[in-house]
Nucleic acid binder design. Structure first.
Lengths: 333, 333
DNA sequence: TTGTAGGCGTTATCAG
DNA sequence: CTGATAACGCCTACAA
C-alpha cells in the first residue's frame, strides 16, 4: 500500500540495492544518482518500512519496556526517563505492563526476545535469576531496573534504598528525636526492607535503641499509613517522629495525626520517601527523601544503547544516590 | 538466532506451511499432526516473530500512541486507559512523544503509517485537518483524542470542555457568588477556550453580567495561577470566587490567596478543573471538575479495535461528560 | 491432508 | 559505481 523501495528504484531508474545504499548512506553510489534518488524519495514521501528492515536483520529502532503497572507514579517516572533518552536516539518505546503477574512477565519477555525490539528494559519481580541469566543466550541486550539481584553478569540500575532509609532516620536523629517510628510497605517489597535496614543502621550508629513496637507495616497507600499511625498512637510511649517508607503513607499519617489532634511538626515530625508531587502541596509540605527515579530510566537506557552499539558500559551495577528534601514536616525536638 | 518456523517444521517432519496452519489454527491439518506440532512448539519454546508476521501482512499486535509529553499527568492517564484496553486484546503499545513540535508530530505519524502498527491513537495539535483527513488514504485505522476538529469523517474522542466550564461556574453561582473570576490557560489551549465559553454561557444563563476585568490568562501551571490571582487582587471590586481552568493553577491561586491573608473558602471560593491527585491533599481540599481522561483512552482504543476488526463503531465523535467533585474550597456566600 | 512456491520490503553479497 | 539475487520468517494460494 505505501510507497516502497521498489517504487523509488523504478522512478529513479536504478535497482533497489542502489536506493538501499543511499538510504543507509553507504558508499558506492555516484553523487549524481544519490541526489536524484534523495529527491525522488522526498517527492514520493517515502519512508522505509521498519518492519521489513527489522526482518532483514537491521535495527527495529524500538526498545521494549516492561513495567508492572502504569497506574503507579513510580513507573511513570521511569518511563519518562527511558522515553526521553530513547528519543535522542530516534528510538520509539514498546511499552507493556505485567500487573505483577508472573506469567505475564514471562510472556512479555518472550514477546520482546523475538526480534521485535533491539533492547529490553525490564522491571519484573517474579522472574528468577536463572531465567534472567538465561536471557543472555537470546542475544538481545537487556537491563534490569529496581531488581533485587546482585549477580555480576547482568546489567542493573538501582536506587540506594538502604541509604534512603539511613538518611531519613539520620535527619530525624539530628533534630533530636529519639523515639522514631518506622512505617513500612508491604511485606513483599524489597525497597521497603532496604529502607528499614537503613533505619535500623542509623539508629544503631547513633546509639539509639531499636524497638519493635515502633515498627508498623503499611501497604504503600495513604490509608495504610493512616491505620499504621493509629496503631502507633495506642503505644504507651509514643514516637515523636515517624519515617514512612513512602510519601503516600506519610500523607496518610499526616491526616491521621491531624485527626487525633496532633500538630505537625510541633507534636510530631514526619518524613516520607519518594518525593511525589502531592508532598509539596500538602499542609505542611512534607520533608522526604527524593529518589532519582527518572534518572534510573535514563541510565538504564544509556546502557542499553551502549550494548546495542557494542560499546562496553562502564559498570554492570549502577546504584543511584538519594537526597534529602527538607520542607516543613519535621522540627527539632 | 531464536527458533523459527523452519526449525519446528524440521523437528516435526512437515513443511513450514503445515506449521503455519496450526499456528493460525486453520483447517487442513490432521488432529494428530496438529498435536505433535503443538507439542514441539512448546518444547522448543517457539514464538512466531511478530516482525516477520507483520511483513507478511498480518497483525503486528501493536498500537501506536502519539502524545505530546509524558511529563504531563493528563497524557499519562490517557496512556493508562489505552494500555489497559490494548492489553485485553493482547496488544502492546508503541509510545512516542512529540513535545508538541510540529515536525515531530508529522514524523511520528509517518513512522506509524509504514506498517509498524495496526492502529494509531493520536494527540497531535499542529497537524491540520487536511493532513489528518489524508491519513485515511494510508489505510490504517486512527482515532484522535482531545482534538479540535469537528470533521465528521474522522474518529474523535473528547471531553466536553464547554460543559466543564459551565458546571464549575454554575456551581459557584448556585452558592450565591456573583463576581466570579476566570483564570484561563495559555492562549493556544483550545480546552481552556471551551471552558471559558462554558463560563460565559453559565453567567449569561443565570443573568449575571460578564466583565473582562475578571478574566485572567495563566499558563496551566501553579505559578501562573499564583500571578493571575495577584492581578485579580488589584481590582477595585474583587471577585468572591474564582474558577481556574485547571487544578494546577487553582492550587497556585490557593497559595496566592493565603499569601495575601485570605481564608479559603471563607473569603474566597476556588474551583479547579481536572481533579489531579494533589487536589485532594491540598488544604483545603479543592473542589474541581473531574474529567474522564482515562476513559477517553479506553474509548479511543475500543474504536481502534472495532476498526481493526472491521466492525463499524457506533459513532464517529464521542464526547464524554465531566462531573463536579465537591470538596471544601467553595462556600456559600 | 500435506507440500510447493511466491511474495511482503529491506539488506547484503557478489558479479559485472 | 551499479545490478542481479538470495536471504530474513512468515503467510497463503494452489497443486499434489
Amino acid at each position: 500500500m505505501p510507497v516502497t523501495i521498489s517504487d523509488i528504484a523504478k522512478a529513479a531508474n536504478v535497482t533497489k540495492a542502489t536506493v538501499s545504499y543511499v538510504i543507509n548512506n553507504k558508499p558506492g553510489v555516484s553523487e549524481e544518482t544519490r541526489q536524484k534518488i534523495l529527491k525522488i524519495m522526498k517527492e514520493m514521501n517515502y519512508h522505509p518500512s521498519t518492519v521489513a528492515r527489522g526482518l532483514a536483520g537491521k535495527s527495529t529502532e524500538m526498545l521494549g519496556l516492561i513495567i508492572p503497572d502504569i497506574s503507579d507514579h513510580f513507573y511513570v517516572q521511569v518511563v519518562r526517563g527511558v522515553e526521553e533518552t530513547a528519543n535522542l536516539y530516534n528510538f520509539t518505546l514498546n511499552l507493556c505492563t505485567t500487573h505483577a503477574l508472573p506469567e505475564k512477565e514471562r510472556e512479555m519477555v518472550d514477546l520482546f526476545t523475538t526480534g521485535r525490539v533491539d533492547g529490553i528494559i525490564l522491571m519484573t519481580y517474579f522472574l528468577d535469576l536463572d531465567y534472567i541469566v538465561n536471557l543472555k543466550k537470546r542475544k538481545i541486550p537487556f537491563v534490569l531496573i529496581d531488581s533485587t539481584f546482585e549477580d555480576k553478569s547482568i546489567y542493573t540500575v538501582n536506587v540506594d534504598n538502604f541509604e534512603a532509609g539511613y538518611k531519613a532516620t539520620e535527619h530525624l536523629i539530628r533534630l533530636g528525636h529519639k523515639r522514631i517510628a518506622f512505617v513500612g510497605g508491604p511485606q513483599s517489597s524489597n525497597d521497603s526492607l532496604l529502607r528499614f535496614r537503613g533505619y535500623r543502621q542509623a539508629l544503631q550508629d547513633h546509639g539509639l535503641s531499636y524497638s519493635e513496637d515502633l515498627v508498623c507495616q503499611g501497604d504503600f497507600k495513604r490509608e495504610g499509613g493512616y491505620q499504621a499511625f493509629l496503631t502507633l498512637q495506642r503505644l504507651q510511649n509514643k514516637p515523636t517522629a515517624v519515617f514512612a517508607a513512602n510519601d503516600q503513607m506519610a500523607i496518610g499519617i499526616l491526616s491521621a495525626a491531624r485527626s487525633v489532634g496532633l500538630q505537625v511538626p510541633q507534636d510530631l515530625s514526619i518524613i516520607g520517601c519518594d518525593d511525589i508531587e502531592a508532598s509539596s502541596v500538602v499542609e505542611p509540605p512534607l520533608s522526604t527523601i527524593k529518589q532519582p527515579i527518572e534518572e534510573m530510566g535514563k541510565r538504564a537506557t544509556e546502557i542499553i544503547f551502549q550494548l546495542i552499539y557494542k560499546e562496553k558500559p562502564a559498570q554492570r551495577r549502577v546504584v543511584l544516590k538519594t537526597s534529602l528534601v527538607e520542607r516543613s514536616s519535621c522540627q527539632a525536638l
